[in-house]
Nucleic acid binder design. Structure first.
Lengths: 231, 231
DNA sequence: ACCTGAACACCGTTCAAGT
DNA sequence: ACCTGAACACCGTTCAAGT
């Protein structure tokens, strides 16, 4: 028979938090907290473990490795993407809406786009749901089958790349996008005209438009380009 | 007067290499060697310094930090991109050729595309040369000025994103792209038909085409989409 | 089966000290 | 001005040992 544990020791053992046992869900939640607050670089095995009151080694019983954890976080993020019911008459606008929605969600989790670009063709449950929905939109648009299949990847790639560009400025309030572009504008203005006539002539147009306008332009090019494949 | 250095000590001091003094060029060359052989992740301050027979701290007299070094390497890579003389009659084909050339160069330096996505709008001397040339192509195409300006970014973004996707498979001979796609195909085939009718119906088309065919499809969508803006 | 601390082999960057 | 070693504060992953 062992002596009962005195209460001050009891409390010392669980002083941090209720310390429920580890599981995949709590790991993903902790990882998403770090992602949203500090960006993808903060989602390290050690930081996530620290947030859960344990050591990095403990996570390996629940996730294969850091890439596996990032893939789980990515699917959780994709779970936030709302998908529409197809209305074939307005397929162009629906594709744009879908792309805007996906960009909005990705932009809310800075750096997550990088996981997509490093792990092409995600196959988590939520990614499948979104793929199915986007295929539904494209198949109602009167496009050849092969165009539908490749357009799926092309649209995702465009949205993902834009999302990654945007999160490049995360956590740098001083050197934010507007200021950076102003600096580039100054720089262009003082280039030698003989070597860079086009850049100098286009100097104003090159700086025109905020991030959203540029994204919209790309969407317009995409859907117009796709429409040229209609049968 | 000090005694002359005995020859065995003299040799001991410079036993590794001729050990010419550090400078930016030799640092960039060493970094590119690592990049080409092992990918961007190998281009660390410590590995580059090791290749030059010194310590990481010594590099900071010549480059601001790791991001600065990566930016210098990026511009050196862009220096390999050949640019054409504009022939306005075949602007669509010239834009495609330019994109193919840029992808070819980026693919030869695995991971470099990531530097572009993290540092939008590169302004190194070679980047300027390429920008000037691409603007020349686009301005001869009869597109509105604002379309030319935004198309410049859009084309670069597409090529960069594809390059990054491709280098995701660098150094993994086993899980190479073809095998990965075959696995995805198997996975799609066993999905429940009620939940994923579009994916199942499109299963063959989704797997069709190699990386180059998909890139060409995207180029076609881009130039067709741009052409819809002609005045 | 799950959890842990310690260890291993890495990082980027700073700094005082040397030349 | 340039170079250096050591230090600091981080990494991912493995492993023997615990429960």
């Amino acid at each position: 028979m062992s002596a009962p544990v005195p209460p001050w020791q009891h409390r010392a053992e669980r002083r941090r938090e209720p310390k429920q046992p580890l599981n995949v869900d709590s790991i993903v939640v902790a990882a998403m907290d770090l992602l949203d607050g500090e960006g993808l670089d903060a989602v390290s095995m050690r930081r996530v473990a620290q947030k859960l009151g344990t050591g990095a080694a403990s996570l390996y019983a629940h996730v294969r490795n850091k890439d596996g954890l990032h893939a789980l976080v990515l699917d959780a993020v994709i779970g936030e993407v709302a998908v529409p019911e197809p209305e074939p008459d307005r397929w162009q606008e629906q594709i744009k809406d879908f792309a805007r929605e996906q960009l909005r969600v990705f932009a809310g989790h800075p750096g997550i786009a990088q996981v997509v670009l490093r792990n092409p063709a995600p196959t988590g449950p939520h990614a499948l749901r979104v793929t199915e929905a986007l295929l539904g939109l494209l198949r109602g648009a009167g496009l050849p089958e092969q165009v539908v299949a490749w357009a799926l990847d092309l649209i995702s790639l465009y949205v993902t790349a834009v999302a990654m560009e945007r999160s490049a400025f995360f956590g740098r309030p001083e050197a934010d996008m507007a200021e950076r572009m102003a600096q580039v504008g100054q720089y262009f203005a003082q280039l030698p005209e003989q070597s860079f006539p086009h850049i100098l002539a286009m100097r104003v147009a090159l700086m025109e438009g905020d991030a959203d306008e540029r994204f919209e332009f790309g969407l317009q090019v995409l859907v117009q380009g796709l429409a040229s494949f209609r049968e």
